Amino acid sequence: MRILFLLFAILPIIEIALLVKVGGIIGGWNTIGIVILTAFIGAYFVRREGIQTLQTAQMKMQRGEMPGKEMVDGLMLAVAGVLMVTPGLITDTLGILLVLPGTRHVIAQFVSKNMQLRVVTATSSQQGSPFSGADPFAQKRDENGDVYEGQYTEKSQDDDDTPRIR
């Protein structure tokens, strides 16, 4: 929740202050030119890296492998694209870090470790909660642990041979 507050409230204020400061140093038109140029360069790199990631994912799927790393890369590239198109110098810097393969992989490893830690922490803290009872959506299993699902009809000999669905 704090991260969302920082992203939507404080980051735009910092971006505007930085753009005004840079505009005072190098000029307003030069600052606008840099922002537009970084948006075009970022869009080019996001497209190039995205196509390469998509091709790698397709090759893995053809071999029957799960393209997990490529899915994370695709998500990071989508975030990088949004950051690069957003006007500002800080968002452009973050976008460039996500577009470059070396830094993107380092950030992806950090995020995945952080997510794993949160998942483990969240599941271990929920064990004592009042909602930790039986799962109402769990599948019913027989004594061997097998799951059997479906409908069947039962025909009785003593009736008029009308099937009954149970």
Rank of each mutant, 00 (worst) to 15 (best):
P87M: 00
K60W: 06
D161Q: 12
V79R: 02
T121P: 04
M59N: 12
T153M: 13
G28W: 04
N144T: 10
H105S: 11
I26G: 07
G74Y: 03
K155F: 09
I3T: 15
V85N: 02
V120E: 13
R2A: 15
Y152C: 05
A108T: 04
K21Q: 10
S156H: 07
Q139M: 12
Q151S: 09
E154T: 07
G23E: 06
G145Q: 10
Q139P: 05
E65V: 08
M76I: 05
E143F: 13
L97P: 00
Y44W: 15
G81R: 00
A17N: 09
Q109Y: 07
D73C: 09
G150I: 07
Q157V: 06
I25L: 15
N30G: 07
D135T: 03
D142T: 10
Q126F: 11
G50M: 06
T121I: 01
R47M: 11
L98R: 03
N30E: 15
A78Q: 00
A17P: 04
G23A: 07
M1T: 10
A122R: 09
G88C: 01
A57M: 08
A80I: 02
L89C: 04
G95R: 02
L100C: 11
N114H: 11
V20P: 01
T121C: 05
D73F: 02
T162C: 02
L4G: 15
F8C: 13
M1S: 15
H105Q: 11
D146T: 08
T121E: 11
R2K: 12
S112Q: 13
L98Q: 01
L54H: 08
V106K: 14
F137N: 04
W29E: 14
S112V: 11
I96P: 02
R2T: 10
I16V: 13
L11S: 02
G102N: 06
V82H: 00
F45N: 00
A43N: 08
P12H: 02
M84T: 02
P67Y: 08
V106D: 05
L100T: 03
L7D: 14
A80C: 04
A80S: 09
G42F: 00
I25F: 14
G95E: 06
Q151G: 01
G150P: 03
A78L: 13
G50N: 08
V111E: 01
P87F: 00
A78H: 00
V119Q: 08
I10K: 01
L11I: 09
A122M: 07
G24M: 01
E149K: 12
P67L: 08
M1H: 12
M66W: 14
I165W: 06
V22F: 07
V106S: 08
H105F: 04
E143W: 08
D161N: 14
S129F: 00
M84Y: 00
D158A: 11
V147F: 10
H105W: 05
Q52S: 09
E65R: 10
G23W: 04
L6V: 13
G28Y: 06
F5T: 14
Y148V: 13
P101F: 13
I16H: 06
P130Q: 04
M66E: 11
E15A: 07
G145N: 02
